[in-house]
Design a protein around this nucleic acid. Structure first.
Length: 669
RNA sequence: GCGCCCAUAGCUCAGCGGAUAGAGCAUCUGCCUUCUAAGCAGAGGGUCGUUGGUUCGAGACCAACUGGGCGCGCCA
């Protein structure tokens, strides 16, 4: 059988072929032009209808002025007449569906051939030559990461992995606002209020978590401190002197904590971009000079914005309801607003600013890659030859939904200023925030009304929130207890590694399994759950498959223990003769495997990592069904080697899926 | 005031205009001398917020309403 498959995935290919044939037959027999892409081929609710069904005849009935069943029969006959290698039979059913049954043996054969051909790349699309910049994490470097940041980073990192599998070259940027008020607050806490620096060994970002809350408590009782804050902020923005130098130190030390936390979750970055470098380099000044008088960047001489440079947004429907729809970019005192700097920065991401950062290698990451950083010229170092940051075809900013208005302004400003392509290619990947379930909030000592419904918002200034590291620690503790019980033979180090892998899976899966517009009411019990629809369940299915293979390699002469070698070995020995008996669970799992690419594409197109999470659960479930219903080791020899082959294919694909979600895939659980 | 989002099983959530609305958790009943029970099989549990409308067909689309969340600066 031909092993060179089209890149779109087996099931997509089958659907596309069906669509083309259907569109042709509708044209021939009914004289109607339809868009093949609009013909849906979905799994029917009841397997007796087949594997793929379309309700197209129902939709066409009125236009064609024919009963749906008549159309269904015509389409059915056309499909039978044309014939497709993987299609076993075609039926029509009331009130007007066309159903296709896939040939199980051929499907199995094709799927395992595909997996064996692509291995770690199974499901992926070929390189598109397009570059995407994904900016995520973007934490203020003034206190420890909380679970909201974890959602951002997990969504961002998973999106990156999805896009890479969909053929994009992806650059991951992490923007560090080291000159903002939040850093000033912490600096003030230490330098002005005299907070004791943390002891050696204590996490500095954790220390700042409490200090930040304390500083804001003091603002409440000593409003005059606000004056000091303003002064500090000014000094930090200027970038000169002792306070600015100390602020930089604070930012670096907090960032070190953030990176450690995120690396622990398997999240890495390509480039850190510092607000202070954007300011120092004069990104905005440069943009301002080229934009002045261009498009709708105008100087107002009257009205509420008199004395300001604004971008005209009036007339754009989205901003129609606002009393003052234009956006100030340069204040009447001559300073630039946040949006102004963001416009310049966004232009840099597309490589159209006309200015670039200096760079230096910043740190070696646990995944082996070098994390680079923008840099003051004096510290700039060599970066790898040919390395170039920015210059994206598409820019995706991962920021929670509360920033929608600002991101809309950014995008429309780009357009108004003459950057239509960049505006069209700027995407705000918005997601709802993480709040606290009433139970978890109460556990943290937050006053929650007894009849409280809904979630309690986190509030950093009040110290209401869950630190990312506390969540990870709790997950590791729970996993450790489980692992010790299940594997008393393991060394402490083995237990620790495995517990960590399980904890990461639980947390990352929890963070991406929800729709992005679902507010997560964070609950410790739910986030740490390891049964049911959870990350550890996915790992468990994977580990059970490996366990079968281990046993198979002992029981079957010549069968390798290594999954990749075993796949090659078992494929060469499997028979896929027509008419062979294939169990429904085998076929169902093969169908699911064959759908991976389609799910990846959907996730990338809709910017919905949850699609991959849902798919992963479905794939693991299909394996569990197979596990329960299709014995491997005790099967007669032909079925046995074929099932070993299927198990190997599952191992490979599940590993790819887990990797796409950023979940570790330990061989034992 | 204007704008965006949400409302589906006791709880947390899926659900692309199509067939009998699904999953996990929780509850109950079973299943570990047979490939890992972090599992599986089964049971109970639903007026899809309300009311109109469009459609052969609406949980999904439209309108209004109710209840909740968020946003709307010469802050960042």
């Amino acid at each position: 059988m031909d092993t060179a498959r089209p890149a779109t995935g087996l099931l997509t290919e089958v659907r596309d072929s069906l669509r083309t044939i259907v569109a042709t037959s509708v044209k021939d027999k009914l004289g109607l032009d339809i868009d093949p892409a609009a013909v849906g081929w979905e799994q029917p609710p009841d397997p007796r209808f087949g594997d793929l069904s379309t309700p197209l005849p129902l939709k066409l009935a009125r236009q064609a002025r024919r009963p749906p069943m008549v159309i269904a029969e015509q389409i059915r006959d056309a499909l039978i007449e044309r014939g497709l290698p993987l299609v076993r039979d075609v039926t029509s059913s009331a009130p007007g569906y066309v159903n296709v049954r896939i040939d199980a043996v051929r499907l199995l054969h094709q799927v395992v051939e595909d997996v064996a051909g692509a291995r770690g790349e199974y499901g992926s699309l070929p390189p598109s030559g397009r570059k995407a910049v994904v900016e995520h994490t973007n934490m203020n470097p003034n206190k420890a990461a909380h679970i909201g940041h974890v959602r951002n980073a997990c969504l961002g990192d998973t999106l990156v992995r999805i896009l890479r599998r969909c053929g994009f070259q992806v650059e991951i940027q992490n923007y560090i606002d080291d000159t903002g008020a939040q850093v000033a607050d912490v600096v003030l806490g230490i330098k002005h209020l005299g907070a004791q620096m943390p002891a050696e060994g204590e996490r500095f970002d954790h220390f700042c978590w409490d200090l930040y809350t304390e500083v804001h408590r003091r603002y409440e009782v000593e409003p005059e401190l606000r004056e000091v804050q303003r002064e500090y902020l000014h000094l930090i923005e200027q970038g000169e002197g002792e306070i600015a130098a100390f602020a930089k130190q604070v930012a670096e030390r907090v960032l070190a904590g953030h990176l450690r936390t995120m690396w622990g979750l398997g999240i890495s970055y390509d480039i850190l971009t510092w607000e202070s470098d954007i300011v120092r380099k004069g990104f905005w000044r440069h943009a301002f000079e080229t934009l002045k008088g261009r498009g709708s960047l105008v100087y107002e001489t009257e009205g509420p914005n008199a004395g300001c440079w604004v971008v005209r947004l009036r007339g754009i429907p989205e901003f129609a309801g606002l009393e003052n729809p234009d956006k100030v970019l340069v204040r009447s005192n001559g300073t630039a607003t946040y949006v102004a700097k963001d416009i310049a920065y966004q232009l840099w991401k597309f490589g159209v600013l006309g200015l670039d950062f200096d760079y230096r290698p910043y740190v070696q990451q646990p995944n082996g890659t070098t994390l680079y950083s923008s840099s003051p010229p004096a510290l700039a170092g060599d970066i790898a030859a040919g390395l170039q940051f920015g210059h994206a075809d598409r820019v995706i900013n991962v920021i929670d939904i509360r920033q929608k208005y600002l991101q809309d302004i950014l995008r429309h400003s780009l357009r108004q200023l003459g950057f239509a392509r960049e505006a069209d290619s700027s995407v705000h990947f918005a997601y709802e925030v993480v709040a606290l379930s009433p139970e978890t909030a109460a556990e943290l000592g937050v006053d929650v009304p007894k009849d409280a419904k809904g979630a309690v918002p986190m509030a950093g200034r009040k110290g209401i929130g869950v630190k990312a590291d506390d969540l990870i620690d709790a997950a590791e503790a729970k996993a450790t207890a489980e692992v010790r019980q299940r594997h008393p033979e393991m060394t402490d180090e083995q237990v620790r590694d495995l517990a960590h892998a399980i904890a990461v899976a639980a947390i990352r899966y929890y963070m991406v399994r929800f729709n992005t517009n679902t507010l997560i009411a964070f609950d410790f019990d739910e986030a740490l759950a390891m049964n049911g629809n959870t990350g550890p369940y996915l790992q468990y299915a994977y580990a059970r498959a490996l366990s079968i293979l281990r046993k198979a390699s002992e029981a079957i002469p010549g069968c390798p223990a290594d999954p990749s070698e075993a796949l090659t070995w078992s494929l060469a020995r499997s028979r896929f003769d027509a008419g062979l008996e294939v169990l429904p669970a085998e076929k169902a799992m093969a169908m699911t495997i064959a759908d991976f690419t389609a799910k990846l594409q959907a996730a990338a197109a809709e910017l919905l990592p949850s699609i991959v999470a849902e798919y992963a659960f479905g794939l693991a479930s299909s394996f569990t069904d197979f596990y329960e219903g299709a014995p491997v080791l005790s099967a007669e020899s032909d079925a046995r080697v074929r099932r070993v082959c299927l198990v190997c294919a599952f191992i490979q694909v599940m590993r790819n899926v887990l990797d796409t979600l950023g979940l570790p895939s330990p061989g034992i659980l």
